[in-house]
């Protein structure tokens, strides 16, 4: 009996604790409201993955620039960045990221813009 009850309690207890903490995500990064302005921001860590897949080819892995302009320490607003992604000016292809992915990328861009300033 002990060999069934104790492992089951351990398994469900530890798993439930991990699940609860994951649902709370207590250290989820936020971007200051002043930086975000009226732009809806998502999760910068997920945004970083999308950025690596979609944007880094032109803007550099860490936003240092390449074919496209450098984004690290850039002084443009997030609203302008969002507008550029949604309706690009120049050679940048349109609709590279949309919806929640766009919110996540903008959150990551908010971090990039703040770096190097």
């Amino acid at each position: 009996m002990r060999l069934v009850v104790v492992p089951l309690c351990l398994f469900f207890g530890v798993s439930a604790a991990a699940f609860t903490l994951a649902k709370l995500s207590l250290a989820e990064p936020g971007v200051p409201r002043a930086v975000a302005g009226s732009v809806k921001l998502g999760d910068p860590y997920r945004g970083q993955v999308v950025y690596s897949q979609t944007c880094a080819g032109c803007h550099g892995q860490n936003g240092e620039g390449g074919v496209g302009p450098a984004l690290e320490g850039a002084t443009i607003t997030l609203a302008a960045a969002k507008a550029q992604i949604e309706s690009p000016v120049g050679t940048m292809p349109p609709n590279l990221v949309q919806g929640r992915q766009l919110d996540n990328v903008l959150a990551y861009l908010a971090q990039l813009f703040q770096e190097g300033r």
């Binding site: 207890g13 530890v14 903490l21 994951a22 649902k23 709370l24 995500s25 989820e28």
Partner: peptide
């Protein structure tokens, strides 16, 4: 995973990862 990203169910990969990730330390404790 737990404190920064948190539980996610955006697609099948992250859902499977989140569920198994919740279980891994439970299996480890056993």
């Amino acid at each position: 995973c737990i404190f920064i990203l948190g539980f996610d169910s955006a697609d099948s990969r992250t859902l499977v990862h989140s569920i198994l990730g919740s279980f891994v330390y439970g299996v480890f404790a056993v």
